[in-house]
């Protein structure tokens, strides 16, 4: 015992003990539940006791037209989010970087990254109010353009754009921070050299600023591919409804509704498993790419 106490390795393990216990309880234990994807679940027998069913769930899934709809919606929404959250923050950062008035710059930043810290529950409450048929947006559209009220959240035309734009609204300020940090670290002699060569401000942006942050852009674009199968459950779950299932129902909401609420546990697990495995492969792929090309390391 005293020999152990004198060994640092022993103390390090004691320090890690809480993490290991929590990790086993909430990360490792659920993994055996994944076998549900290949079973016939009988509640009285539990997950382990239920008989195996092979690939039955997957055969059933392939014949289910809903799954293709859900997959399409997920990809369209997440790619839309990915693109908007790549381009808009870069433009914002380039604009902020041009300004010399400190307080204005800081105020804009303070305001634009505020929504990042508000939950989608709060924001869904707000957006449901302003986008409703008797909300402020419809009221403005009516008084300015004489348009008839549109049920934005109950329209298959408007739902995806609203999801993508409201996500952009929430996250653009936050994403700007990293690009702005990259921009401020560009060596100012480069700008001075460009100035002497007679470059205009737009030319300086084009030939100094953008190349200066190209690496960061490439890195963040690569890492954002991780989330391609996750269209944003919290946002969509709090904003969608039956009318917009055609364009707004995504993998996670579908799994939640059918698998958990509808108690089709095997089906839900089967879809969740595919999602998790592809997600894990994407994480491995993007981090490998990021490490190879940008020497990005987590630890």
């Amino acid at each position: 015992m005293t020999k152990w106490l004198r060994n640092d390795q022993f103390h390090y393990h004691i320090m890690l003990l809480p993490v290991f216990v929590l990790f086993i309880l909430f990360q490792i234990f659920p993994i055996y539940g994944v076998t549900l994807a290949f079973k016939h679940f009988i509640p009285t027998k539990g997950v382990l006791g239920s008989p195996w069913a092979g690939l039955e769930q997957y055969k059933f899934l392939m014949q289910n037209p809903e799954i293709w709809r859900v997959l399409r919606n997920t990809l369209i929404i997440s790619v839309g989010k990915l693109i908007t959250l790549l381009i808009v923050p870069i433009v914002l950062a380039l604009m902020l970087n041009e300004l010399r008035v400190k307080w204005f710059k800081r105020s804009v930043q303070t305001i634009t990254y505020l929504p990042h810290f508000l939950s989608w529950v709060i924001l869904a409450g707000i957006f449901r109010d302003i986008l409703s048929t008797h909300g402020i947006i419809n009221h403005l559209m009516e008084t300015i353009f004489g348009m008839n009220p549109i049920m934005y959240l109950g329209s298959n035309i408007w739902f995806r754009p609203i999801i993508i734009l409201s996500n952009m609204w929430k996250e653009m300020g936050f994403s700007t921070v990293i690009y702005l940090a990259a921009l401020t670290s560009i060596n100012s002699t480069l700008y001075e050299a460009a100035e002497i060569d007679g470059a205009s401000r737009l030319q300086k942006i084009r030939h100094v600023s953008i190349p200066g942050i190209a690496m960061v852009i490439a890195l963040l674009a690569t890492l954002s591919l991780n989330g391609i199968l996750y269209a944003g459950f919290d946002q969509i779950y709090n904003l969608y409804n039956v009318i917009v299932y055609d364009t707004g129902d995504v993998i996670e909401t579908w799994v939640f509704r059918n698998g958990l609420v509808g108690a089709q546990y095997e089906l839900g697990t089967a879809v969740g498993l595919v999602n998790s495995v592809i997600g894990l492969l994407l994480v491995a792929l993007t981090y490998t790419l990021a490490y190879r090309f940008a020497n990005y390391r987590i630890f």
């Binding site: 993490v19 990790f23 309880l25 909430f26 990360q27 490792i28 234990f29 659920p30 993994i31 055996y32 539940g33 994944v34 549900l36 997950v47 996670e252 799994v255 939640f256 698998g259 958990l260 546990y265 839900g268 697990t269 879809v271 969740g272 498993l273 999602n275 998790s276 495995v277 997600g279 894990l280 994480v283 987590i298 630890f299």
Partner: peptide, 24 residues
């Protein structure tokens, strides 16, 4: 670290987590 990172990246999905919490 690698175990925590890799196993931690694998999310069993909502239903295995649900079953697990029930069992616990």
């Amino acid at each position: 670290l690698w175990i925590l990172l890799i196993v931690g990246s694998f999310n069993g999905g909502i239903i295995p987590n649900y079953m697990n919490a029930k069992n616990l």
